[in-house]
Nucleic acid binder design. Structure first.
Lengths: 349, 349
DNA sequence: CTGTTAGCGCATTCAT
DNA sequence: ATGAATGCGCTAACAG
């Protein structure tokens, strides 16, 4: 694209036809005789013309074939989360089947500048928190069709999972087993560029919270265990889960009989911590996770968890964006999780 | 971008200035009086103008602010590999700091169409095999500045790691401990859209191989253990490593004393398999990996491995691309791995 | 079937 | 400090 490039006009001149005819020969969207098409293609070959320049084409057509995916984290943080990867893959399945490219944009630091200036036909907002309201406003102004995947209600077309119901179901499972003393390990409550806030779940922490998914799942769990103690982790990882587990389980006097973790990785960490403390799972501690990702045997048991249809969500978001671009009016959709009865929950001792 | 949008001309008209003046007011790259700038911005505000349309701008400037990252796998496969994620994050660190967006493109199936038609200022080819020669040729024709990250020699500017030397070093480490009966577990030899080829490393398999990294690492290991038996895995994962481990270790009569795995995930799987067979590591079997990724305690021990500076590679590739766009001439670079002495290798029994 | 005309939205000369 | 003119490369109406 930089450097010198043949243009359609040059190709047309060489083939002895008009530019518009040459254009038709490439797009195939009009009546061109086989002979002329041949001539045009031959001329292109001689000039090493690689096809119409996307820039001219997209200005003319008002379409670029680019769909943006906007995240609040930098790439590394986002893609360390297996659920996000599955969602992104779902999106890519749909969009790339239509020859659309995915533009990865991050709403952090200077990277966010690109959101205001990058070419895009539409955007998918991935797991936004309320922190990003200004970004949503900017994209709205740019009249970019938007699809939200998870996140707070911006009045946008939204693809989501019923986090609250699923969390409530997880809690109800424990309640049904007879647990009454339950602790909750949450995902981060604030976003990446805020000072990391790992620690006990306090009223202050709740007030400062901006991450929708964490709050919604918390609400679901609290609907069953209103007084449950909580621990806020700084990321969704095994290590963070272990820290949470240590904090919640170390003191035998204040030890819950069950833990609800807001992700499988956190749950795995809690189980690890329990083992290190000499607690058997589920004999002395029940643990339920959230996500249903392959844990690659980080823990020996099969984790009891709420399975989230991440790839399906991604595909739905991808389809919604394509529908938006096609002019049809897709509808918001909410997916349900399914309970996976693993081997990490049991009746309290 | 779709739907109706105010244009710079409308803003200019409303502000009572010429289009060119309005343009200057936005770009800030020319002399405009503070008063007129105010008027222009006010007019923009009234019309809810969100700034210059990227399409017009990129046609005019010949720049789009988009850097493509082209991979041979679909998103899911690519991002299941922690090294790839780290590399991508390194790229993003550099490019997004310059406000450039990353366009994710896949050289598989219909998704590949976008490679010929998508807007991009430059492209980074991520871990290409020789299979993708036609794609390289296409991008060359499009006169897109290219940077290869790993992969075969296309005569392109290439950022790589010295796989062969690192593999040789890993092998030498085992040789130094006294091992002579060593087996090698390789990464896939053929690409995703070829029929998956898991199984013993045969001459036939070698002939059909197209994945550079696997072959290069193999060459390094074989430089120390020319006759080493091998197993080709179908992916870089713990599960594949376990399958390899089962295959290589099940028969006590033909059991090696050490295994060189071409990735840490494969190494972890081999160790898992060893444990299942009742073999102690490193007592009865030494295992060395490759990558130096955080294993999140998939195995109990600290893995002995060759640590690859993945993020640094990514940053180097990102910088190279930016340099290319800036007109300076970056040079190819090769990174060295560092040996990490973990707890999974020892003298043979 | 092919050519002519027009303009997508903008940044950049060059005048003034 | 501002404005007028030009064209980036292409496709879509329309006319022939």
């Amino acid at each position: 694209m930089s450097g010198s490039r043949a243009t359609l006009a040059q190709v047309a001149a060489r083939a002895g036809v008009s530019v518009s005819t040459a254009s038709l020969a490439f797009s195939g969207s009009g009546p061109v005789s086989a002979a002329t098409r041949e001539r045009v293609l031959a001329a292109a070959e001689q000039l090493r013309y690689a096809g119409p320049d996307p820039r001219g084409r997209s200005l003319r057509q008002g379409r670029s074939g680019i769909i943006a995916v906007v995240m609040e984290d930098r790439v590394l943080a986002a893609f360390r989360d297996p659920v996000r990867i599955a969602v992104l893959d779902g999106i890519a399945q749909e969009t790339s089947a239509q020859g659309q490219g995915l533009l990865l944009l991050s709403d952090v630091g200077e990277s966010a500048d690109a959101i205001g200036t990058a070419t895009m036909d539409a955007a998918i907002l991935l797991a936004f928190s309320s922190r990003s309201d200004p970004t949503v406003e900017l994209l709205r102004r740019r009249v970019v069709p938007l699809v939200a995947l998870g996140g707070p209600d911006h009045g946008l077309l939204t693809i989501s999972i019923d986090d609250e119901a699923a969390s409530a179901a997880a809690a109800a499972h424990l309640a049904g087993l007879g647990h009454t003393d339950v602790a909750i390990v949450t995902l981060p409550l604030v976003n990446v560029d805020s000072p990391a806030a790992r620690g006990p779940l306090t009223a202050d922490a709740m007030r400062a919270a901006s991450v929708t998914v964490s709050l919604t799942r918390l609400r679901g769990a609290r609907s069953v265990f209103p007084a449950a103690a909580g621990w806020v982790s700084a990321a969704s990882s095994v290590d963070e889960g272990m820290i949470a587990g240590q904090a919640l389980l170390a003191d035998p006097a204040r030890r819950p009989t069950a833990v609800i973790a807001q992700s499988d990785l956190l749950a795995a960490g809690v189980i690890r911590a329990a083992h290190e403390l000499g607690l058997s799972v589920p004999g002395e501690l029940s643990v339920i996770g959230f996500d249903g990702i392959p844990l690659d045997r980080i823990i020996p048991q099969d984790l009891t968890t709420m399975v989230q249809p991440a790839a399906a969500e991604g595909r739905a978001a991808g389809r919604a964006v394509l529908d938006l671009l096609a002019g049809t009016q897709p509808r918001s959709a909410s997916f349900q999780c399914t309970f996976h009865p693993g081997a990490t929950t049991a009746r309290p001792a």
